[in-house]
Design a protein around this nucleic acid. Structure first.
Lengths: 240, 240
DNA sequence: ACACGATTTGTACACCGTACAAATTTGGTC
DNA sequence: GACCAAATTTGTACGGTGTACAAATCGTGT
């Protein structure tokens, strides 16, 4: 222990640390989106030259990675550990917590989807999920697969929620938008597709927490009560 | 009709069209990832000055949008329309088709997650899905919600599949990687989290089509056979 | 007081998206 | 065939990005 700590932090540490950088990145992300979270912007916010960041992080990717990890660290695991709460409710609570935590930083969500979710805290979340599912009676293998499925649902849902689904949410396609689109790439979107109005409505409506939880429970239903599989349809296709 | 077509295409159309641009963008995306698909790169591939692209597209975002739409256009809808095939198998077929089509262009997947999926072809896909679910006996409202859930699962699954999950897949964290990480952002990842080896194993294994379909069918199970809801847990939380 | 090492900074390079005006090519009209 | 107008391409340029390199600065142990 004493030997481990021998090499003390030296040098002119004035303002910046890893924490400062990550926090600056997060705040910039919230204010101005992904584009605002630049190395130069981060450095300017801390009051430091851009290159100073490279003392603590080798890459910008590393900064992003650390920021994502920082977000995962804010997720409260308390509900997971409480054995008083029934397991389904526990998962529901953590799904809500995760969603609210991530939706607080929409810019960051775009960063982790397709990005680095392999940090220790992100994996720890998956680990806890598996434990809960195992305690619900699932076999270790099924619990692992189920945990992955749940993660997919939660993140996929949040991603599509936060995503820029264009102007579907805000307004029906007016003539102006159509004109602009046709001017932009006419030959590609020249064909017409039958589109009912309900599609846009549903996508606009699904952002609610209520429907998020509805989907979550349908997934849980399928996990805990899988239907007996007929050998002719799904299994046959999967075996190839 | 005749009046509509009066303004004929004039001018020196030598090499570039919307199609050429999109195809160049896609090929560059496949070869070098997102960073390679730059306006300058696309223009260079067609043998044109970078600015020439802006004749056909107002933005780079428009190019991305068109590329994503182009991908959706490659998805074969045939299985959807065939009433001979049982509906569950139809959904399975389209899920496989979509997955294979998207996995052929991993770089593009990162583009659409959190990106523009509001094109006519993307919406048409959702529309067909709703039709199949409705024909399976679901009410229009439930069909709409179920379609959204399925889209979330399919895209979330593919996204996590294609995503750079770090080195989890490839190798266990060796001392070298740990050292590099600690050198990069020591104070943040200094804490240790309990991590079982199975987490990494499961994530590494789940890329298989078999498990992708397993999850799909569990979701379908939950959709077609939702458990009777107890008023104390989920519904109470959702009502708030 | 001195030196060492960690940290910060200045400068610079290659790349990005894209705005603007000038040049080029084409089709239709006289 | 000459001309015009419109569509397309290009040259140049600006501000932005990530980041490599060497020089300068500062805190700390001896």
């Amino acid at each position: 222990m004493a030997e481990q700590f021998k090499g003390f932090r030296r040098g002119p540490r004035r303002v910046s640390t890893e924490q400062d950088i990550v926090e600056a990145a997060l705040s910039l992300l919230d204010e101005g989106g992904v584009t605002a979270a630049s190395i130069r912007g981060i450095a300017a916010r801390i009051g430091v030259a851009p290159n100073a960041v490279y003392t603590y992080f080798p890459d910008k990717a590393a900064v992003v990675k650390a920021t994502v990890e920082h977000l995962f660290g804010q997720v409260d695991h308390a509900a997971f550990a409480d054995p008083e709460i029934p397991w389904r409710r526990r998962i529901e609570l953590i799904a809500i917590e995760l969603r609210e935590r991530l939706k607080a930083h929409p810019g960051a969500v775009g960063l982790m989807i397709g990005g680095p979710m392999d940090g220790p805290r992100a994996l720890a979340l998956n680990e806890r999920l598996m434990e809960v599912l195992a305690s619900a009676g699932l076999s270790p293998t099924d619990a692992a697969k189920a945990a992955y499925l749940l993660v997919v649902y939660v993140f996929g849902s949040i991603a599509l929620d936060v995503a820029d689904l264009g102007d579907i949410r805000q307004a029906p396609p007016e003539a102006e938008r159509i004109k602009a689109r046709q001017a932009g790439f006419s030959s590609i979107t020249a064909e017409t597709y039958p589109l009912s109005a309900s599609t846009a409505e549903v996508m606009a409506r699904y952002v609610s927490t209520e429907q998020y939880l509805w989907g979550l429970h349908r997934v849980l239903d399928g996990l805990t009560h899988p239907l007996p599989q007929k050998p002719d349809s799904a299994t046959a296709a999967a075996a190839t």
